[in-house]
Simulated scan of single mutants.
Amino acid sequence: MVSTVRTVLGDVPPTALGVCDAHDHLFFRSPRLPGQELQHVSAARAELAAFLPHGGNSVVQWTPYGLGRRAADLPPLSRETGVLVVAATGLHQAVHYDDETLGRLHGRLAEVFVTELTEGIGTSGVRAGLIKVAGGFHGLDAHANRTMRAAAEAHHATGAPIAVHLELGTAALDVMDLLCGELGVPPHRVILGHLNRSPDIVVQLQAAETGCYLSFDGPSRANHATDWRMPSAVRALADAGHGDRLLLGGDTTSAGARSVDGGPGMPYLLRRVRPRLEVELGAEAVERILVQNPSRAFAVEWR
């Protein structure tokens, strides 16, 4: 079987991704961010257009089920801008949903995930290329446990990678114990997000040693007070032999964070983060993190 990346325009060779923003959002809506919804097609188009001149070739959107993915709008945006886009299925933390939505999904999460990976999201025909789930703060609650079990089932049925939101960067080892230890997901099929939000290098190294991918995303969020530690953490992981498992993303989740609305947005990843990391690692190493690592992390021998 041949590995491909499932984009909103269809399956492509992994090398087609080029320079990849491995975790971001073109559309996102949550009751936790009232008034900051990413919902306008024109703004999404402008953001992709701003990303392209800095060398960006592809974006992986981690927006899961029920949070305003606007799947039908993704293919024309990709065609118009020339930026490849990967969509997600999956489920975020329970606080992002109302009881009716969660009740509607009860007992059929894995079925929904598999359908969106193999047949398409709703009536859009757009197939998801990854499964996004979420942990809790320093642990896994019942909702996280349930969604991760469904994600593991969907992975075993399709081969799709599982991307995990770590709440404030915590519970990485709990996630790996459940997904890979108990549920049998190969570690290289798991992507842990937001490692930069909890700058514990010991835990980061322990997570990396399992063989999973570590995503450093949302670096523009100065309120997390960890930006300045991210380059040294990435270097420590690379020096320990884990440079081939590192990913970088922008994680734009609010309208005010978009570059077209005055924020850093997607271009910041290549305009500011990339040269800063090149000081620590060298240009060739950063190029591998932006190009080669995503091409492996999101490539699947689809079942």
Score class of each variant (00 low, 15 high):
Asn57Gly: 15
Ala240His: 09
Pro186Val: 08
Asp21Asn: 11
Ala238Trp: 09
Val286Phe: 09
Leu195Thr: 03
Lys132His: 01
Asp141Lys: 06
Leu91Thr: 13
Cys180Arg: 09
Leu33Glu: 13
Arg104Glu: 10
Gly250Tyr: 13
Arg271Lys: 14
Pro53Gln: 02
Pro76Glu: 02
Ser259Val: 06
Asp244Asn: 15
Glu287Lys: 10
Ala152Met: 09
Val260His: 07
Pro53Thr: 05
Glu287Leu: 02
Arg104Phe: 04
His194Met: 01
Leu117Asn: 14
Leu247Asp: 04
Asp98Ile: 06
Arg276Tyr: 08
Leu117Ser: 03
Thr123Asp: 11
Glu37Asn: 13
Leu52Asn: 14
Val85Asn: 00
Glu119Pro: 12
Val273Trp: 11
Gly103His: 00
Leu168Ile: 08
Pro294Gly: 05
Ala44Asn: 02
Asp99Pro: 15
Gly184Val: 11
His96Glu: 15
Pro34Val: 00
Leu26Asp: 07
Thr63Gly: 03
Leu9Gly: 01
Pro199Ser: 02
Ala50Tyr: 00
Ala285Met: 00
Leu102Tyr: 02
Phe51His: 05
Arg127Phe: 10
Thr226Asp: 05
Ser58Gln: 00
Gly184Cys: 05
Val19Thr: 08
Gly90Cys: 13
Asp98Tyr: 03
Ser78Thr: 00
Ala163Gln: 04
His138Phe: 15
Ala49Leu: 12
Arg146Glu: 08
Tyr268Leu: 11
Arg149Gly: 09
Ala142Cys: 12
Ala49Ile: 02
Leu109Asp: 05
Arg108Ala: 13
Val203Gln: 14
His138Ile: 15
Glu111Met: 10
Val60Trp: 00
Ala160Gly: 06
Asp174Ser: 06
Gln206Ile: 03
Ala160Gln: 01
Leu290Ser: 01
Asp177Leu: 09
Arg197His: 08
Thr115His: 12
Asp98His: 11
His96Cys: 12
Glu209Arg: 15
Val164Ala: 08
Ala299Met: 05
Ala233Val: 05
Ala49Trp: 04
Ser3Lys: 10
Arg235Met: 03
Gly125Gln: 07
Arg69His: 12
Leu178Thr: 07
Leu26Thr: 00
His54Trp: 15
Leu205Gly: 14
His106Arg: 13
Thr123Asn: 12
Asn57Phe: 07
Gly218Asp: 01
Pro294Arg: 02
Arg271Pro: 05
Ser3Leu: 15
Asp98Val: 06
Arg189Asn: 07
Ile131Gly: 01
Leu77Asn: 11
Thr170Arg: 06
Pro275Asn: 11
Asp141Val: 10
Val273Met: 15
Gln93Ser: 13
Leu195Phe: 08
Leu270Val: 03
Val60Asn: 04
Ala71Ile: 05
Arg45Gln: 09
Gly181Trp: 03
His92Pro: 10
Arg274Cys: 04
Val234Lys: 14
Arg149Met: 13
Ala46Met: 12
Phe113Leu: 04
Asp99Glu: 14
Gln61Cys: 12
Ser58Gly: 01
Gly35Asn: 08
Ala71Pro: 06
Asp21Thr: 11
Arg272Thr: 09
Gln292Ile: 14
Ile191Trp: 05
Tyr65His: 09
Ala160Thr: 01
Leu48Met: 04
Val273Asp: 12
Ala44Val: 13
Gly35Ala: 14
Val41His: 07
Leu52Cys: 03
Gly265Arg: 15
Thr81Ala: 06
